[in-house]
């Protein structure tokens, strides 16, 4: 078996570029998702965007336009509900996002001709990735890096201590909206490879693994995208050879890396990652 045989195919080359970049972007944004305990929001948002993706497929509207508008709207709504911080905000997010997901499934059942592209969005597919998708993911990655670079301190302050950040002149509401938009963009541009059902795992696993490896925020922000990119590369290659969907393979690789780091770092790593849910 020639391990690098699939590189002769253009679709695979596109797929692996998108998978590597998707892993890196998910790792990068995942640092904020994990530290802000937003994994449920990421999970819900990916399900919500699925509704827009299904509607775009049925109406033959450009995927990124339809799902993108839907995603941005959902992100802002979820951000608004979550910011209120009242008891039950998670229930409200659940209602908004699962209704959108159910609508996507209903459209998929009613209009069978869109089933293939909808399946690709649900589970991820190498075949669904074209040249335009590569440019889209590169654009999403560049946007994330620029936003994180230019708002690094404000993002950090609003993540660590939003109340004090607010008093210290940081526009926390704007920073949180920006983060939600970045999250929606990341999900939108990486869901074709990862799949809606598995993308939230990629938003959590590389960042949680990086958290076990370091106590420094800036180092975590470097390690998590590297882990994500490596998982994207290895997972995509394995996906071709064992004929399993790329999303599932990438997540399984990421989970294996998590387990290895969890074992190697011992109690220190467990304490770091165990504390993610506690304030």
């Amino acid at each position: 078996m020639n391990l690098f045989e699939p590189f002769q195919f253009a679709f695979f080359r596109n797929g692996i570029i998108v998978a590597v970049l998707a892993g890196a972007i998910c790792g990068l944004i995942g640092v904020y998702v994990v530290l802000r305990q937003m994994s449920y929001i990421g999970h819900g948002l990916s399900h919500s965007i699925f509704g827009g993706a299904a509607a775009s497929a049925v109406l033959s509207v450009n995927f990124y336009l339809g799902a993108g508008l839907w995603g941005l709207l959902s992100a802002l709504m979820i951000g608004r509900v979550a910011r209120r911080g009242k008891i039950g905000s998670d229930a409200a997010i659940g209602v908004i996002t699962t209704a959108s997901f159910a609508m996507g499934l209903a459209l998929s059942n009613l209009f069978g001709q869109a089933k293939r592209s909808i399946d690709a969005v649900l589970f991820g597919s190498i075949l669904g990735v074209g040249g335009a998708d590569v440019f889209a993911v590169v654009g999403a990655g560049a946007l994330s890096v620029v936003v994180i670079y230019s708002c690094y301190r404000q993002l950090l302050f609003a993540t660590f201590d939003p109340e004090v950040a607010d008093v210290s002149g940081v526009n926390v509401a704007r920073i949180e909206a920006l983060l939600m938009l970045m999250l929606a963009t990341t999900i939108l541009f990486t869901m074709k490879v990862m799949g809606v059902l598995l993308i939230s795992a990629m938003l959590v696993t590389p960042a949680a693994t990086a958290r076990m490896m370091t106590n420094s925020f800036s180092r975590m922000l470097t390690i998590a995208p590297i882990i994500g990119a490596l998982c994207g590369f290895v997972g995509m290659l394995l996906s071709y050879h064992i004929d399993v969907s790329p999303g599932a393979t990438i997540i399984l690789i990421a989970s294996t890396v998590f387990l290895v780091v969890f074992t190697v770092t011992g109690s220190r790593g467990r304490r770091n990652v165990g504390g993610l849910g506690h304030h």
Binding site: L35, L156, F160, D161, R211, T214, N215, S216, F217, R219, M220, R271, N272, G275, L276, H278, H279
Partner: peptide, 9 residues
Amino acid sequence: TVNWNFPIT
């Protein structure tokens, strides 16, 4: 109220 597990120096 501080999150002491946050990765920060």
